[in-house]
Nucleic acid binder design. Structure first.
Lengths: 228, 228
DNA sequence: TCGACGGATGTGACTTTGTCACCGACATGG
DNA sequence: CCATGTCGGTGACAAAGTCACATCCGTCGA
């Protein structure tokens, strides 16, 4: 499930890449670096999921992890992503063996992360105020993000959400390589709904579509729609 | 906003009411009891909300707090409840001053709670493994609960969700005093939708309605529907 | 006692979203 | 070349949300 690569940790202070850990006490930081492993995971790795609890808490150095949920009905929805500079707090939730929730974390790109064993995590929370702040801030951010997801799923129109998601996923580029199916999972809706909305965007001259890619012809129009 | 009642803390060990705190180290427990206040809040008190961060973390001794969110569009949805024996971890999220999220916590009944100041909370997390476990378990539970809410809002049929909610809110009694409006907020849907579903339940002989109350005529049928 | 008022509920017409059962188009590998 | 699997299109329908009302009922002053 996972491959571990030990690195020369003395020369690679990965904590510097985490804003919240920049001011970590020197002694603490050294302990953390000493007791953690930097790990590389290929794209598509399942970091955690039903029946797969990780033993370590991850601090993402590069890449992104997508956390999504599969409903009993088979439909899926993307809950959030963890990007470089963020930690995988859900792992701790998982570590605590809370009953089998259906969420899973998947490496969306090749991922490099620092793996911190559970006991080390606990020691750090106990001994470092800075680390505590970091951890609670991470939890808070997740929870408020989930509030936002709930708000959008419950109350936002699908055309608006789709426009927002297209802009978000494009990351500034003017084309997006994805399928209607994948977009429907992002929004927790049905593929046909996405297809129809994209047809409408195309009819309005905002995008052009070919199999597997969407080109933006009028990004501003999409952004306007996405602003409510 | 809040009224504080000091009690004879030496004789009232409220930590005993929290399963997760039962094994708290004696020294820690005394510190917690010494530095916290037991507080009474009237029904309807706003515990936290947009612009109202609490200074304390609450441990609920009696009553219930309802946490809900108001969307920009004015529609509302109940996110979760905090019952006696649980703590208000969201408060810590709030304490960390994460940007103004729109969620608010309201006392659904008269509430008695132990208020733990922020610095005491931090000390306890630092010094007690038991307390740490308690806090992280609380966070985990909230997050997994929110996953469930997302799943239901996104993928579950409204009749099934309504049946489940009626059973849940009735708490074993065979009548429920609430309005269609309130039920619609519970589910994050429109009042008309609730009215129509309730009419359908009534037509099937499962419930009887009068202004402000619902009587259960065939609770089993509702439970069956609620099981998918 | 009357009537105004506000909250609670009922209703119909309509739009949006989700579901289902298909279809053909395209890419890939034998 | 065909078989297969993924991708996207389509129409008919069902479920859910929206809007604009119409009642209904209890309460509170006048």
């Amino acid at each position: 499930m996972r491959q571990m690569d030990n690195m020369d940790q003395a020369t690679d202070d990965w904590t510097a890449r985490f804003p919240g850990l920049a001011r970590l006490e020197r002694r603490i930081r050294d302990h953390l670096l000493d007791r953690s492993h930097v790990t590389d995971l290929p794209e598509g790795s399942v970091i955690f999921g039903p029946g797969k609890s990780p033993e370590n808490m991850l601090f993402l150095l590069d890449g992104a992890i997508r956390v999504q949920q599969v409903s009993e009905t088979g439909r899926e929805i993307v809950l959030y992503r963890i990007h470089a500079g963020e930690s995988c707090v859900l792992t701790t939730a998982c570590l605590l063996a809370y009953d089998d929730y259906s969420a899973e974390g998947i490496a969306e790109t090749p991922v490099r992360a620092a793996a911190v064993p559970r006991d080390v995590f606990d020691e750090l929370v106990a001994s470092s105020p800075t680390f505590r702040t970091f951890v609670f801030a991470a939890f808070s951010k997740r929870i408020t993000d989930l509030f936002l997801v709930i708000d959008e799923v419950a109350f936002q129109r699908i055309d608006i959400r789709l426009a927002q998601k297209l802009i978000e996923l494009s990351g500034g580029r003017n084309r997006l390589e994805t399928t209607h199916q994948r977009l429907s999972v992002e929004l927790g809706t049905a593929r046909e709904v996405v297809s129809r909305q994209l047809q409408e965007f195309q009819r309005r001259g905002w995008i052009a579509q070919t199999r597997g890619t969407i080109r933006f012809l009028d990004r501003t129009a999409l952004e306007r729609l996405g602003e409510d």
